[in-house]
Amino acid sequence: MTIKTHTAGIAQAVVLAALAAYPLVGSEFYVEMVAKVLVLGIFAMSLDLLVGFTGLVSLGHSAYFGVAAYAVALIAPEFAPANLWFVLGAAVLISAAVALGIGLLVLRTRGIYFIMVTLAFTQMAFFLFHDTALGGGSDGIYLNFRPEPRIGGWMPFDLAEGSQLYYFILAVAVLVFVGIKRVLRSPFGRVLVGIKSNEHRMRSLGYSTFNYKLGAFVLAGALAGLAGVLYAVLFGFVTPELLSWHESGHVLMMVILGGMGSPVGAVLGAGAMVALEEAFSLLTTHWQLLMGGVILAVVLFLPGGLIALPGRMRQLIKSGGPHE
């Protein structure tokens, strides 16, 4: 057990060091791609909080991601850079508020109905930005300037600079990762895992599970919003597709691919998804077909996702041993 946690700690340190060193060696294109993986990793971790830890399969998680991204674009002035801390705080708060409103309604349903209503809400959000003047139609909105992290007169770093933007995103991703780990071992986090295991029993033990689920829903929405802000800042434009249910399915697939119930798995899933999409789209224009095949294979042959792979290998080696 201690050896295992030790190995995991070393592995995490190595990965972090590699991520920190990457801009020194990688081309601009790939640095941006790794930044995208980190952003989607935050998004996937936020969804995993619901799917993997609380047992709430949401098919509407893109709503909070997209709403925050749009909030950045709409709050930012047209001819001057916005203040990063202001747009970040405002957009995350808006996402949290939207999650609170939607959560109050959808958490009254269960199972397949929960999946359907979350999907319905994200589609409503999609059409709100797609079909009204608010969201600039199907073309979306361009961000003319990257927000500035100005505190008073001081600029601690500059997001217009590619590698500094990368390090900012990496720092946020690490903070979210560590934060989620902490939350999961808190009394609140233990209750969420209990709800996933046996909600009825949690209620009879005195936990008003609705409030806990709502807390998880708002927290997950806020973190998805944080990812949405980073996405808008990274790519400099937002489109209604960010809110569509395809995007919700996309992030759900990352969670499944990486392995539910593990923040590391969620980031792994995001990385694998982006890498496979990139590789397959170089091979063929029908890359989505290949992608579907991979997802299917993972669900069928590796139910625990990529994160379960080392354990599976160890098991295979162990069971293979005595036959030699």
Binding site: G179, R182, V183, R185, S186, P187, F188, G189, R190, V191, G206, Y207, N211, Y212, G215
Partner: peptide, 12 residues
């Protein structure tokens, strides 16, 4: 009995 739901960073 002492749920402490708001102590998000406490170790349960």
């Amino acid at each position: 009995r002492h749920q402490r739901a708001w102590r998000l960073f406490a170790n349960a």
